[in-house]
Amino acid sequence: MRNGVTIGQAAVFVGVTVKTVRHYHKLGLVTEPERDSAGYRRYGSAELLRLVQVRTLAGAGVPLAEIGPLLESDADQFAAAIAEVERQLTERISELTARRDTLHRLSDGNRALLPDRAVALLARMPSLGYPPAEIAAAREGWVLARALVPEGFDDYLADVENAIEDPRFVTLLRRSTDIEAWAPDDPRLDELATEMAEHFLANPAHLRIVTGLQARTEAATRYQLIANHGHQETSAAGVLAALVETKLRAAGIGIPR
């Protein structure tokens, strides 16, 4: 009776494929048995034990490049190496969990890109008189703001949450969303811009909605990307925004050009 088993049998016993066994041989993780008189490589108990050890460590997440030295280490080194692998796996689990949570949020496009408090504000906008197009523009602008000025985004949301509790502010918002059909040179735009600027100047907490999203670097560029998103400069909305900014600058408020 021949001693040992063939590579195919060894693979089945250990729970891997023949290709995997050969890969272990190539990496030097398991010594390849000598051929017997019939020309077959026979795997004895020592080779099978080594295969089990390698397969177990690889299955636990130990990189193949580290398995060889690990199996040759003493007990203390082995324990330390396993602890490091466990730490790396824990980090990987945290990363994968975060990715999974993001995928879950993709069922709601807003929640995938914005925090819950921003989503809640978007949900309130219809009741404030915002039409769908304005809500979509606000959502996209907030996504940009969060990416370009992350350090100021939470404070900005807090200021918006506070401002929409003020009836006068809400009234101005509603009026500003009713100008879509106005011509860019409509004289009512300047009147509305004056009212809005005066409101902001009289309410510093509301003014921060305009001034708060200013980055520490490339402030003007980032501000304009956010402030002008969704509005053509020649549209009534674009003209209104520019007029409000001009009036605030005239009053000494620092707004990037």
Rank of each mutant, 00 (worst) to 15 (best):
R22D: 01
L128Y: 10
R117E: 07
E86L: 04
S127L: 09
L148Y: 05
L71R: 14
E134R: 13
V85N: 09
V119W: 01
V52K: 08
L48A: 03
V14G: 08
E72R: 13
A46P: 09
T102F: 04
V54N: 01
G28A: 07
V14A: 10
A120Q: 13
S73P: 02
G28I: 06
L106N: 04
L57E: 00
A112G: 12
H104A: 14
A120R: 14
L48W: 05
A60T: 04
H104W: 13
S73Q: 11
G141F: 12
L96S: 05
I93T: 13
A60I: 00
Q53V: 08
S127W: 03
R99W: 13
Q88E: 15
R92A: 08
V16A: 06
G109F: 13
P131K: 04
D76Y: 13
P132V: 07
I67V: 13
E66D: 15
T97L: 11
H23C: 04
T20D: 02
L27E: 11
F13W: 14
R124N: 02
D74T: 06
A80P: 00
R50V: 06
G28E: 07
T56W: 14
V85I: 10
G28T: 06
G109W: 08
G39H: 02
L27K: 15
R22A: 06
S37I: 08
I93Y: 08
L121F: 05
G109Q: 11
S127I: 00
A133W: 15
P126A: 08
L113Y: 02
L49W: 10
R117W: 00
A80D: 11
P115D: 11
P69F: 02
L51W: 03
R22I: 05
L144N: 07
N110M: 11
W142S: 07
R99T: 15
K19V: 08
A120K: 12
A10Q: 04
R117K: 01
V14K: 10
R117G: 00
W142K: 06
A65D: 15
Q77K: 08
T97F: 01
A137M: 12
A145W: 06
R146Y: 01
E84I: 00
A98E: 11
N110C: 12
N110I: 12
